[in-house]
Design a protein around this nucleic acid. Sequence first.
DNA 1: AGCTGACATGAATCCAGGG
DNA 2: TCCCTGGATTCATGTCAGC
Lengths: 393, 393
Amino acid sequence: MSIARAGVAGSKPRIQVTRTGVSTARLPAASVRLPLNEILVGDCVAELGKLPAASVDLVFADPPYNLQLEGALSRPDQSVVDAVDDDWDKFASFSEYDRFTRDWLTAVRRVMKPEATIFVIGSYHNIFRVGTILQDMGFWILNDIVWRKANPMPNFRGRRFTNAHETMIWAGRSAQTKAYTFNYETLKAGNNDCQVRSDWFLPICTGAERLKDAQGRKTHPTQKPEALLARIIMSASKPGDVVLDPFFGSGTTGAVAKKLGRDFIGTERDAVYAKAARARIAATEPLPDDAVNAPPAKRSEPRVAFASVVEAGFISAGETLVDDKRRFKAVVRADGSLLMSGIVASIHKAGALAQGLPACNGWVFWNVERNGKLVSIDDMRGTIRAQMKEAAE
Amino acid sequence: MSIARAGVAGSKPRIQVTRTGVSTARLPAASVRLPLNEILVGDCVAELGKLPAASVDLVFADPPYNLQLEGALSRPDQSVVDAVDDDWDKFASFSEYDRFTRDWLTAVRRVMKPEATIFVIGSYHNIFRVGTILQDMGFWILNDIVWRKANPMPNFRGRRFTNAHETMIWAGRSAQTKAYTFNYETLKAGNNDCQVRSDWFLPICTGAERLKDAQGRKTHPTQKPEALLARIIMSASKPGDVVLDPFFGSGTTGAVAKKLGRDFIGTERDAVYAKAARARIAATEPLPDDAVNAPPAKRSEPRVAFASVVEAGFISAGETLVDDKRRFKAVVRADGSLLMSGIVASIHKAGALAQGLPACNGWVFWNVERNGKLVSIDDMRGTIRAQMKEAAE
DNA sequence: AGCTGACATGAATCCAGGG
DNA sequence: TCCCTGGATTCATGTCAGC
């Protein structure tokens, strides 16, 4: 409250980028200076305790997920998955994880301005505990947001659904947080004049964006994509705002904040991560004022499962599909697979099997009879595609 | 355990639909009869207490979440600024919801078979508390699944992202629940031969599917779409399984279970909902067997020893096996083991050894030459399996 | 330069059954 | 209960070598 920073309160905030990625100065608790655009190396609870209260506008937190992995996992080609087995992700019990969570959330909450909001990201291993503690502490949940990964790791053993998303909780500091920043109009304008939904479709961080060490190994096991942070910062902050990331890691939050004309504060326990993040941010240039926009999400024809054609009611389970010349037929099962001569297969496999060919496009091969005429299932796919496109990716 | 039902154990389960939606009989605790395809009117904890333990295969639960939290959420907080007092206030009402959740989950858990799984659906208002309690009680989360709504209600005030999804948690009864049902192969076949992800795109329940009363008002405020339940039941149960829904509501679970050849048990406090659900289910017809039943998945096929391939005369002892590219060879011994470079090993071990890999499926690795062409030993296994099936019938 | 195919890899609670 | 073994199992994307 009392920690006003020159140039922030006004309607035209000025962007301050002070010695980005250079200082690790520890501040006495009484100081009023905010260590902007710096990475404080140390435990976030301790480091945040040195900052003045009510001084940040937005928080992004990517805490350890407590994955509880046991043993190794191999791909079908026998290669071994490089799992997250770092010490920082190990907790003795759920209650220890809960205590850890409550501690850092308490420290973070103190430095949040009354109208600040926080995003916390997690997976099913930890996000339910984070959400419960947020509620218990009096944070006010505004949305839960799903990051749908364009290219998730598959489930190699076929025992579960592909774990293809992570969850973010967006919450206000309290139920009284009403005047939080939400750039509704600009978000809508950038989304075909359509409100942005709570499910976001984005690729994971790979390629040139992924930080590597001298040996070519990934610097950080869980580096988040810049596009994700860009959406968050664009949605819930203004230029000149201060964005805090208590688990700074490889520095995605800092790099994107700098690009988008926001200030950042980071805390990070691991000096190696902090050093890499500083170098990354130093090499990052702010975008020109008028070019502040999220990178466009890739778009292609959405893939439609034949199961959706059944689910949408175009075809009922138990109906029969036939080819153009009605030489072959197959029964539609409730799960969208086909039953043909005692074999369950996809529309593609069944079409190939029927013709004795190695492959077949089931969408154009199969038809269903309607009023004595054949209707292609491909037409039904077209209708569903249109619907999916509306639910913008 | 002891609640065997005629017609379920065999390989061709027969669908029993006993007096669907007619009886509300209360069962004494000592009874062993399971009230299949009935709706028990009353509180789920009380009603489930009358059922024998370990008697259901799958649970779908759509618990209430708005009313319990309403009091806490709408309470104006003008009293104290001190965060600790805030917390106490909130904790009181959240803890009431937590107790409710723990109670019904305890009752449900008792009637779950050891290898049963449970789906719970909720929104950000309650799902984090449900998830935390599931974990604390020892349930083992398999996936969190996002239902992406094709047609969600927009956010009218433009202060948040469109709340376009709900979250389901899929969990095993305990961490020891390993042999749960997951119909991986047929699901994949219905999805373009691609494994199904944790985000499902489905329309909300509208139109003719939505139950209406005589005045045309919707019977139930949160009726779930049948397509959602169909996916759940097709994914995680077999024909003839017993599906429990402790918050039966408008009866979507029962209607879909009947369609898909599963039995159901429902509990519902509201007699009006129960009556509407009974009528709905009575008007529902089961799908033909072809649309529902599947041949056994690959991993549940009976094991065949390579020795029996030799014994059956498909291969003679002393013959040579080779891989696809004829780079490796091994001699078949009379006992079904292989001799390769002076080492005796199983077909799997020999294949792994040859390639320098930790493991190998010898059935698909090795071939034998017949008339100048390679024949896979896996084909011989298929023939033997077919013979085994004939003999079993 | 541009195409093709082999190879690498990502927050993962990833097997079942017999001795 | 632990240990051992049979044998079932992957999608999207990026890099790089080879032509």
